[in-house]
Design a protein around this nucleic acid. Structure first.
Length: 270
DNA sequence: CGCTGACCCTGACGGC
DNA sequence: TGCCGTCAGGGTCAGC
């Protein structure tokens, strides 16, 4: 469910409710996420003030003087702000209660997400070796082109590789390649510099556009379940196999690359 | 080092 | 109504 735009939208939505707040109590109902929720979360977080809520890749970082809680939403995770006494439903695995009387509730049916603890999250094994943020200055066509030198993997798998660039999930990978006119199976190392520049620019603009859209439709962080659907009307190819390409009216194709569904237009992408 | 495929888990959905 | 197979937007890891 959460791609980078949704994680960023979640961050912006909950930040005003948690930043500067002190944690009153932590309730872990189910420790079995991608990795077991470490005891530090229960032991060290209470009493700490959340200095800031940042995002690195798809991790939400709750920074305190004692350390940082790292939350990843995986495939099916979501977070929202609730009244602390609201009854928990199935899959509501963790509550972080705040002194304001509100609580941050983490829900994750498939439990592919994670909640970890680090003294310095930027040195954590899962974050240390990540590629640049797509919306940062250091990510551009030159970087992508350099990074792709000699790489034979498909460009779609290449841009979805978090050590290349973070935050390009399966939906936006297909979208971005369509908008760039690049065939998803094309080998990464066989793309000319000018086309890589277009690809990098398209990644930035699509993610920015999706964040902007998310900001208007994921507004309800108390009651709602955060179901997306907002970008759906703007999708050009994702989930549209056998429908017609908006640009050339040819049928959109579906293939599998790296075990992930991949949508593209045979006529528009080369 | 680069790359591939198995795997983690629950729920939704379509076909019968 | 229920059962079964398939699929899902995340990522790590072992092994070649």
């Amino acid at each position: 469910m959460p791609e980078l735009p949704e994680v960023e939208t979640s961050r912006r939505g909950i930040a005003p409710w948690v930043e500067g707040q002190t944690v009153a109590k932590v309730i872990v109902r189910d420790r079995r996420l991608r990795w077991p929720v470490p005891m530090e979360i229960d032991r060290l977080l209470p009493g700490q003030k959340i200095n800031s809520l940042r995002r690195r890749a798809k991790y939400l970082l709750f920074e305190t003087d004692a350390g940082t809680a790292m939350l990843h939403l995986g495939m099916s995770g979501s977070v929202r702000i609730i009244d602390a006494d609201e009854p928990a439903a199935k899959h509501d695995h963790v509550d972080v209660q705040l002194e304001s009387g509100k609580a941050l509730r983490v829900r994750d049916p498939r439990r592919f997400g994670s909640l970890l603890w680090a003294l310095d999250p930027y040195e954590h094994d899962l974050i240390r070796n990540l590629g640049p943020e797509p919306l940062s200055q250091e990510f551009d066509g030159d970087y992508l082109w350099q990074k792709a030198l000699g790489r034979r993997v498909s460009v779609k798998q290449f841009i979805m590789n978090a050590s290349v660039v973070v935050g390009v999930g399966n939906i936006y990978a297909s979208e971005v390649l369509f908008l760039s006119g690049i065939h998803p199976k094309r080998q990464a190392g066989r793309i000319a510099a000018d086309r890589m520049a277009l690809l990098a620019d398209t990644i930035k603009s699509v993610l920015e556009r999706a964040i902007a859209a998310g900001g208007t439709t994921l507004k309800d962080f108390y009651g709602g379940d955060g179901e997306p659907g907002y970008f759906q009307q703007q999708l050009e190819v994702y989930g549209r196999d056998e429908e017609l390409c908006n640009r050339c009216k040819n049928e959109i194709s579906l293939i599998v690359l790296g075990q992930r569904s991949t949508f593209y237009c045979k006529r528009c992408q080369h």
